[in-house]
Simulated assay, not measured.
Amino acid sequence: MSKVLDLYAKAHRIPVVGDRVFSFAFSQVAPYFWSVRPLFTVIEPNRAEVVIRKRRGVQNHIGTVHAIALCNGLEAAMGALAEASIPSDKRWIPKGMEVSYTAKADSDITCIAETDPEQWGGAALSESGGDLRVRVRGVRKDGATVIEGEIRLWVTDKPGAT
């Protein structure tokens, strides 16, 4: 089990504050994530969910959640998914992101990242590295998708891992 998955599982068992404690700790590893105050609600292999509350600090001039705040939430979800899913002999780094804004983000937003299990093994990730596409989307409280796209990862062997 990955460190992130193990820590999330332990924190998630603590009623009321466990997810908040984990979310704060995760954001300290990559401090920019704290700008959106992510709340991790699901972390498992091939899926992660992060809630971004609609609050003044993430709003744009029309009172909706800012596009870059949405991207930040999607990247946080992707990072947790990658850490929970990647084989122990591999490492990853984001390579690019493409998103489309499909509706106003006028409520709290759940940022979702997903992959398929077969993406993490076999010929898809050769010794020299390979692209891995993570599907991402942000969903309003009413179920409408407000942003969708993909984040491309570059996955390679860890140095010294065989």
Rank of each mutant, 00 (worst) to 15 (best):
R135G: 05
G73M: 08
S85Y: 02
A80M: 03
P38W: 11
R91D: 04
A113G: 07
E114A: 05
S85Q: 01
Q59P: 15
V21T: 05
R37P: 05
D142L: 15
R13F: 05
L153H: 07
V50A: 00
V51I: 12
H66C: 07
V65D: 00
C71E: 09
V139A: 09
V50R: 02
A69N: 12
I93L: 07
P87W: 12
I52E: 08
S27F: 08
P87R: 04
F22I: 01
K141L: 13
F26P: 04
P45G: 03
E118G: 09
V21H: 04
F40A: 02
V65Y: 01
A69G: 06
T102P: 05
G79A: 14
A84T: 09
L5N: 06
R91Y: 08
E148H: 08
N60M: 11
L125N: 00
A84I: 13
T162V: 15
S100P: 10
G63A: 07
A144K: 08
R91W: 08
H12L: 14
I62D: 13
G63M: 04
R91E: 08
M1P: 14
D131F: 10
E148I: 11
S88E: 10
G63N: 09
A76F: 03
V42N: 05
T41S: 08
T64S: 04
F24Q: 10
V139R: 00
T102I: 04
V136P: 01
A105T: 02
I14N: 02
K141D: 15
L5Y: 09
M97Y: 02
A113W: 03
R140T: 01
I86S: 01
I147C: 11
K3G: 02
T110W: 03
T145L: 11
D116K: 06
Q28E: 13
A11E: 01
G96D: 04
A25C: 14
L39Y: 02
V65N: 03
A30H: 09
I68N: 15
L74M: 09
E118A: 15
Q59T: 09
A11L: 00
Q119K: 05
G122V: 13
V42R: 14
R55Y: 00
L7M: 10
E49P: 00
I43Y: 00
G73A: 08
H61A: 10
E148R: 11
D19R: 03
G73S: 07
R56K: 08
D106F: 06
L125R: 09
R133Q: 10
G160D: 02
S35E: 13
Q119V: 02
E75W: 05
P94C: 10
K95A: 11
T41V: 04
V146L: 07
P45H: 05
V29E: 06
A161N: 08
